[in-house]
Amino acid sequence: MTPDAGPDSVRTDPAIIVRGLRKSYGTREVLRGIDLEVARGQVLGYIGPNGAGKTTTVKILIGVLDGFEGQAIVCGHDVARQPLEVKRRIGYVPESAALYEGLTPREYLRFIGRIHGLADCEIDRRGARMLAQLGLSDELDDRIATFSKGMRQKVLLVAGMMHNPEVLFLDEPLSGLDANAVVVVKEIIARLARRGKTIFYCSHVMDVVERVCDRIAIIDDGRIIADGSFEELQAAGRGESLERIFTQLTSAGGHEQAAEAFIRAFDVEMRA
């Protein structure tokens, strides 16, 4: 049922191929020609300021958003023409906690697992085991509505991975997680990559991206403005940390002035 790593899955073609990807909402062009190839087993950090087009790129690649120009191929299938084939092979952990809150984690995972064609006993086994490793074994039968943000995130993580996808799209996967879970998830990502899984990692947390990803693409205003390993980006003379590199590339600078002006907003009020 699931595309587990078999002998014929030792493939060398890229897991994700994007060519000339453009997307507009009305007259606003969100993506202005994205070109990207992600090799199998690679962990790509996809970073950019708010509104740069990260989520739009992901939504196109997972087959949820249509009406784009250019080509997007995931796991050897054209996203526009064979969205179902793509969806069978990928996992997606969304940024917002989209869950059926009225269900319990057990019920929710069963729902997701059945959609992916897993047997019930397999779903229960994997679900319970995965949630337990994230520290959520006692809450299997509580309603998700009662969960904290981090607990919901854990359910989302398991729901995104339990069918053992070839390519995993993670949108801010660590948000709300406690420190223990963060360490576990980072290690999970590294081990999945070693098993040949491809990971498309969107985040704003620079130091995590710096450590977890073996390649980083920076998107700004609908275009990729930098692409390479962290060391390559450093070598290009952009700065020491990824945060430095990022801010140099994507903003006009002047953070101190911005912060000062922000604080000054109080003063104006007091004078008035």
Binding site: V64, K87, Y92, P94
Partner: peptide, 12 residues
């Protein structure tokens, strides 16, 4: 409301 839950899954 459940677009983000259902649409990324392989449901026809």
């Amino acid at each position: 409301a459940d677009n983000l839950i259902l649409l990324p899954r392989p449901v026809s």
